[in-house]
């Protein structure tokens, strides 16, 4: 399979204000992460809040500075070294769909203006009729009707606003779409509509999608491969089948066990102890394996050395001494 993105040793660190004693304080948001994204796949990134999944996504569109490492797009462009001019060109290819559908739309612009804006930026000479035709195309594609074209975002519900956001992201024909918790703010019945829409569009336009979510059921429904993150590190990366049925990492196990099932019989017969404690501070990540402070299998070895990602027989990449 052809690689769309090759991410190698990616580090995104944030420096905080110095403490009272003048010590340097660094948040290790994404710490030495390497993986590939293949053309036409939907890659899910899951993990608890603070695991670095959003930081990772934002650094792929230049919304965060990359501290170190390489991100190679289509075999040639290194996003980590791109200047603002290069980013301008790259953003035609890489688009982002945000979590809060209402806040990500300008309240003073009509639907037409919002969807047409990327076209105006990248194709300033495009004729008005052509722009309008494209805007209408996009609106039909995401399930909005013609008569809504001159309305403002506040006249729409959350689900409809997310459709506008999707139309805006797709109007330039990008190769890669990054969805950062794009359905999390929506109600159950609306969420299902948007998930179906994203799935259809992915197929129809053969898009590559990076889908970030804390909701493991949604990720299972929409993704081909899943990357599990914890405290800035990759714990496991495998196909959906492996992650949900034969996962190797104890964190993947704990995460899946914690999701309450909408089936009372399953819930009643579930006797797993919830994972204890909480995510350690990314200011002071544990010495050894980052998950060792909460891992039921951790021993002294796990607490002193950090496991590297290694391949399992089924092709899964796992960072765990016990797997």
């Amino acid at each position: 399979m052809e690689k769309l993105l090759e991410i190698k040793d990616l580090k995104v660190y944030f420096e905080l204000k110095r403490s009272l004693l003048g010590k340097k304080r660094i948040v290790y948001a994404v710490d030495n992460v390497s993986f590939d994204v293949y053309k036409g796949e939907t890659l899910g990134i899951v993990g608890e809040s603070g695991c670095g999944k959003s930081t990772l996504a934002r650094s792929l569109v230049g919304l965060n500075d990359i501290t170190d490492g390489n991100v190679v797009f289509l075999g040639k462009d290194n996003l980590a070294k791109a200047d603002s001019k290069r980013w301008h060109a790259l953003r035609q290819e890489i688009q982002f769909i945000f979590q809060d559908p209402v806040a990500s739309l300008n309240p003073r612009m009509t639907v037409a203006e919002i969807i047409a804006e990327p076209l105006n930026v990248y194709y300033p000479k495009m004729k008005d009729e052509e722009v309008l035709a494209k805007v209408l195309d996009m609106m039909h594609l995401v399930g909005l009707s013609d008569n809504q074209i001159n309305r403002y975002p506040q006249e729409f519900s959350g689900g409809q606003c997310q459709r506008i956001g999707i139309a805006r992201a797709l109007v330039l024909n990008p190769k890669l779409i990054i969805c950062d918790e794009s359905v999390s703010a929506l109600d159950v019945s609306i969420k299902a509509q948007i998930i179906n829409l994203l799935k259809d569009l992915q197929k129809k336009l053969s898009l590559t999608v990076i889908f970030i979510s804390h909701d493991l059921s949604v990720v299972k429904h929409i993704c081909d491969r899943v990357l599990v993150m914890y405290l800035g590190n990759i714990m496991e990366l495998a196909t959906k089948e492996v992650i949900y049925k034969n996962h190797h990492h104890p964190y993947t196990q704990a995460l899946l066990a914690a999701v309450p099932s909408a089936n009372p019989k399953v819930e009643k017969h579930k006797h797993v102890k919830p994972l204890e404690g909480e995510l350690p501070s990314p200011l002071h990540p544990p010495q050894g394996c980052v998950f060792s402070t909460r891992c039921p299998l951790a021993d002294d070895g796990c607490k002193s050395a950090r496991p590297e990602l290694r391949y399992m027989d089924d092709g899964a990449l796992v960072a765990c001494f016990k797997a």
Binding site: V188, S189, A192, K220, H221
Partner: peptide, 16 residues
């Protein structure tokens, strides 16, 4: 309309 961890469906049922 809820995606489930236990069984898989190609498309979620939606409420229009």
């Amino acid at each position: 309309s809820i995606p489930s961890l236990e069984h898989e469906v190609e498309r979620l049922a939606t409420i229009p």
